[in-house]
């Protein structure tokens, strides 16, 4: 799994370089996110702009990450494509997650 991270103040920006966040990648992804949280990251921007498809396992991994962070407001998702956004909407998670178009907007939301 290819993932890249950047720190902006206390916010960790995680960019996933996988076209599919599905059952093959979900466990690794969840473990990586778990690792960031265990290492002290409390606010995370998840950049999904390179992801073209998320299945139920992938969605589960994102939800787990959000729940591990504790407060829903501490996870901001940016750049989901139309297909991924459709999934968020179907699961009504668009009402729970903060979802924006760009990384800059995400950082603004988190007031960095």
């Amino acid at each position: 799994m290819h993932i890249e991270t950047n720190n902006h103040g206390d916010v960790l920006v995680v960019k996933l370089f996988e076209s599919r966040l599905d059952s093959y990648v979900a466990t690794d992804f969840r473990d990586a996110m778990d690792g960031f949280i265990s290492q002290g990251s409390e606010r995370i921007v998840l950049d999904l702009s390179k992801v073209e498809f998320v299945d139920s396992s992938g969605l589960g991994a994102i939800v787990t990450t959000q729940k591990r962070l504790g407060r829903a407001r501490d996870l901001v998702i940016c750049g989901p494509c139309e297909t991924v956004m459709r999934l968020f909407k179907l699961a009504r998670l668009d009402k729970i997650f903060q979802i924006v178009n760009t990384e800059d907007q995400a950082l603004t939301v988190l007031e960095v």
């Binding site: 729940k67 699961a91 009504r92 998670l93 729970i96």
Partner: peptide, 10 residues
Amino acid sequence: GTIIGMGGVM
């Protein structure tokens, strides 16, 4: 509402 398992967020 949302998926089952979210723990009452909605």
